[in-house]
Design a protein around this nucleic acid. Structure first.
Lengths: 218, 218
DNA sequence: AAATAAAATTAGTCTTGCCTAATTTTATTT
DNA sequence: AAATAAAATTAGGCAAGACTAATTTTATTT
């Protein structure tokens, strides 16, 4: 079994891999975890010894088959607990991430599967991220963002790319949820701000950063 | 907030205090946690600095008001999670203790109260231990054991004093549950073995140790 | 009360996982 | 290509929380 820290690194590497598909460098991991690059180097050695990752200076860090499997299970647990917290305990969107961050490390061979069954085998978590199945497979992950949309088109909010409560609280304020319809009216060429209409209501302007944090479905 | 280790010590001290009401010595804590007495001395210093306990060589370790409050909350969380695991996720009696041991450390201000509500404010956990309420109060704790019973009398299993799976699996084998009726037929004076009848069925003989691990209600 | 046993404590060590500072390696500019 | 900047790595340290071994204190016997 893995330590809490090892699991957090695995999850982080998994996320960087999914997000970018690019080379994963020690610096990128350090930034993502808020740790010092020197600490990352230590952990890279440890995870390499455990054969969960392979590190090559040219290619960066890559997960081995076992590393992918283990990381997927952590993500599965995280997302299932998020569903539980929201649906069963009545937490709000912006409160669940940090708690799930702790719950995902609970170690028991059958816990994830039992929770999955109890929740009715959900496909997506409250942030719109697909929940890996027991066999590691998972539903489609959305990748188009609101910022990628052509002005004039309409879309449906499918997922959030950013799960910080600052972003989620802003979404609550704007009355945006998974499933909300948004129309992109105009893209301001000066700073790429987006003029949008939420659920057919009056226009609002949001930043480029905002647009890049919302994953959509067309 | 407290570290995982601090919480485990607090809980251990709380349990020793409830169980025996006797002087709590470093050695007793060490035995209970499976740690070295030297480590216990370190932690006694730490918890004393945090004003969670008071240590006096004559009186042993005692919880301060704050220490009691914090320990009670940990116990509350542990017992609520046990109810959840058994009732909602379908675990068996003997599987829940260790998982709850991890879940009890999840830190969130409203989690215990939400879980309590979700479970319908249970009074007792699956082992028959009373669950502390949000205000710290809790239902009656049973203290009479089967071994204290007078031969000839009848009783109801109210709780188990031992939550190891070895004991619980033995109970499953004997078909004993919380609520099961037991009649004490005879006490063998040689070794204090107990001849009992479970739910009116044919006689079984159990050890003194067994009798001391079952808490009963008359 | 002295001898012995048990408990408590101190001193020093180890591992994990982080840090800073210094150095080396690799990339990017000019 | 040389200079500069950025990234990676090494070396050494620190705190938490455990350990062992040695010592001191307290309790129990004789």
């Amino acid at each position: 079994m893995h330590t809490l820290s090892e699991e957090n690194y695995l999850k982080c590497i998994y996320r960087l891999w999914q997000d970018k598909g690019q080379k994963i460098t020690p610096t990128a991991i350090a930034e993502s975890l808020g740790n010092n690059p020197a600490s990352v180097v230590d952990m890279i050695r440890k995870l390499t010894d455990k054969q969960l990752i392979v590190y090559d200076k040219k290619k960066g860090v890559e997960l081995t088959a076992q590393g992918q499997k283990d990381a997927t299970l952590i993500v599965r647990r995280h997302r299932l607990w998020e569903v539980f917290l929201l649906e069963k305990l009545g937490y709000h969107w912006d409160e669940i991430h940090d708690i799930a961050e702790e719950l995902e490390h609970i170690k028991d061979a059958t816990l994830a599967d039992r929770l999955d069954k109890f929740l009715g085998f959900p496909e997506y978590d409250p942030h719109g991220d697909p929940i890996p199945k027991a066999n590691g497979k998972m539903a489609k992950r959305y990748s188009t963002t609101l910022a990628d949309l052509k002005p004039g088109s309409q879309c449906r909010v499918a997922a959030v790319k950013d799960t910080t409560s600052a972003f989620l609280q802003y979404l609550i304020k704007l009355n945006i949820n998974i499933g909300t319809k948004i129309q992109l009216i105009e893209k301001i060429s000066f700073d790429s701000s987006l003029v949008i209409s939420i659920d057919g209501n009056e226009r609002t302007t949001v930043s480029q950063k905002f647009g890049e944090s919302l994953l959509i479905d067309m």
